[in-house]
Deep mutational scan, measured.
Amino acid sequence: MQNSHSGVNQLGGVFVNGRPLPDSTRQKIVELAHSGARPCDISRILQVSNGCVSKILGRYYETGSIRPRAIGGSKPRVATPEVVSKIAQYKRECPSIFAWEIRDRLLSEGVCTNDNIPSVSSINRVLRNLASEKQQMGADGMYDKLRMLNGQTGSWGTRPGWYPGTSVPGQPTQDGCQQQEGGGENTNSISSNGEDSDEAQMRLQLKRKLQRNRTSFTQEQIEALEKEFERTHYPDVFARERLAAKIDLPEARIQVWFSNRRAKWRREEKLRNQRRQASNTPSHIPISSSFSTSVYQPIPQPTTPVSSFTSGSMLGRTDTALTNTYSALPPMPSFTMANNLPMQPPVPSQTSSYSCMLPTSPSVNGRSYDTYTPPHMQTHMNSQPMGTSGTTSTGLISPGVSVPVQVPGSEPDMSQYWPRLQ
């Protein structure tokens, strides 16, 4: 039975679970980093996980050691009161100082060594604690504590007292930064006198190289990059290397530039699409467009005044059976039934097929058609009795279509119309 579990990581490298990497692998990681390889490249070359490479390099940059820390136990506290007071002093002298600059000053002034120097995250935590204590304490208590930490007896009751030896409130920041720059020169002199001055200088240079600022491109470089971006948004590694040799930039910087440029292009394309949609959409909808001609068919113009009344309900007709019959029939052209047409008796099958359309009241044959006459024609229609054979009435077949029909004066039988409509 094995005491430890061995495995293979996602890159194909072998590791022992819970145990640190061998010293030979750690040394190779540092050597590759000094030669300029990126952590992701080191991870692929040595088949070590990216997190492990970053952790080893980060500890090497901070402490200069590649040895693993002790497994188990607690780390001794490195942010001692003396170190905290120095950090507060540096922050007062130059409020814009960075944590890694404070760390360098602690090393250069001999406050800490490589073994007990606090990390950048520890210094940031100390600065946050100082800021929170400043908010919790009152103004007087804060000034007393700062005077105690600074070891001075001057008056701290006013704002300019934060910067000793100065009279203009805006000047101390520059003086403090100048003092810090002077301390940086002392850093070089002190570290050069040490035993491991060369190694420390190499480590600091490598650290500065990794902690780079934003790349500033010249106009020629920007023009070359934009020209390549117009050709393709995704250049391959050969195109990037050719462009890197042409404009004297690292291939990694060119790759990052193209990634950022593609993101910018997507944002601009989104804005262009929004403007295009806004320009195509009308600002207001016309009133006429809300009524579609496919839904509402136009009603033909009436030929006679009587045809303006298109349904039985508008003429005072309360018989719903006839109203439904007229509205359900398709529109037909106007025609006239003459008196000489043969009077065919209704076929029983045809009569039964339209039995649902006729009223059940037996008085329908005896009703006159003056009910369908509009009010303004009552006088004219009353002067001509319906009993004469020459009287013409208008029957409504569908809305908007008038059918003048000659009705025999002897017997106005409704059943004569249905064979004609089939």
Rank of each mutant, 00 (worst) to 15 (best):
Q2G: 09
Q2L: 10
S4Q: 09
S4V: 11
V8G: 01
V8K: 12
Q10A: 10
Q10C: 11
Q10L: 12
L11T: 03
L11I: 05
G13D: 03
G13L: 02
V16E: 11
G18R: 00
L21D: 02
L21S: 04
R26L: 02
R26Y: 03
I29R: 01
E31K: 09
E31D: 09
A33M: 10
H34R: 13
H34Y: 09
S35K: 15
R38S: 06
R38A: 05
P39F: 13
C40W: 03
C40S: 14
D41C: 06
I42Y: 02
S43P: 01
L46P: 00
L46E: 02
Q47P: 03
Q47R: 06
N50F: 07
N50W: 15
G51Y: 00
C52D: 01
C52R: 02
S54K: 15
S54H: 08
R59Q: 10
R59K: 11
E62P: 00
E62S: 09
T63R: 03
P68Q: 01
R69Y: 11
R69H: 15
I71N: 05
S74F: 01
K75D: 03
K75Q: 08
P76E: 02
A79V: 06
T80D: 01
T80W: 01
E82G: 08
E82R: 09
V83Y: 03
V84I: 12
V84C: 10
K86I: 13
K91T: 03
R92V: 08
C94V: 09
C94L: 11
P95L: 14
F98R: 11
A99I: 02
A99T: 06
W100R: 04
W100P: 03
E101V: 13
D104A: 11
D104N: 12
D104P: 04
R105S: 12
R105H: 08
L107W: 10
L107D: 10
S108E: 14
T113N: 10
D115K: 05
N116Y: 12
I117P: 14
P118A: 14
P118M: 14
S119Y: 00
S121A: 05
S122C: 06
I123F: 01
N124A: 03
L130R: 08
Q136T: 10
G138I: 09
A139F: 11
A139I: 06
D140Y: 10
G141Q: 11
M142K: 10
Y143T: 07
Y143I: 11
D144W: 08
L146D: 07
R147H: 13
M148N: 15
L149A: 08
